[in-house]
Design a protein around this nucleic acid. Sequence first.
DNA 1: AAGACTGTAAACAACA
DNA 2: GTGTTGTTTACAGTCT
Length: 116
Amino acid sequence: PAAAASSKPPYSFSSLIFMAIEDSPQKRLPVKDIYGWIVSNFPYYRTATGGWRNSVRHNLSLSKSFRRIQRDKSQSVGKGSLWCVCPEYRLALLEGLRKTHSYHGSSSCLINKPVL
DNA sequence: AAGACTGTAAACAACA
DNA sequence: GTGTTGTTTACAGTCT
C-alpha cells in the first residue's frame, strides 16, 4: 500500500547514525551523508518538519559511540569532518538494535543487511 | 527512587 | 553574509 503515509521510524537517532555509518563503504561519513542515508532509507524524514538534523548533530557530539575524525587533508573536497563508530561501542550499538527490534523473521529489516 | 537514554529546541562559535 | 558544521545547555519523557 503506497498510501501508507510513512510514520516515524522506531529507531533512535543513535541507531540511525550507526546504520548509516555501517552501511558506508569505509565506515565513515560526513554529516551531510548521514542525513542523506536517513532520508534515502526512511522516507519519513524526506518531508519531516522540525530539527531532526539538529538532533542528529546533537547526538553525534553527545554520544560516546561516535568519533569525529579529520578528513584527508590532501583531498580538499568536502567540508566538515567524518564520523565513525567507536569500535568499543559498536557491539553495544548492535546489541541495542537487536534488543529494541527483536521481532524475529523480518528479513526485510535493514539491520539484517550484511553490514557486519 | 535514581540514573541512563531519548527527543527536541535553542544559543553560539567556527568555517567555507 | 549565508548556510553548514559542531558544541553546548536545558527541559521533558521513557526505560531500566
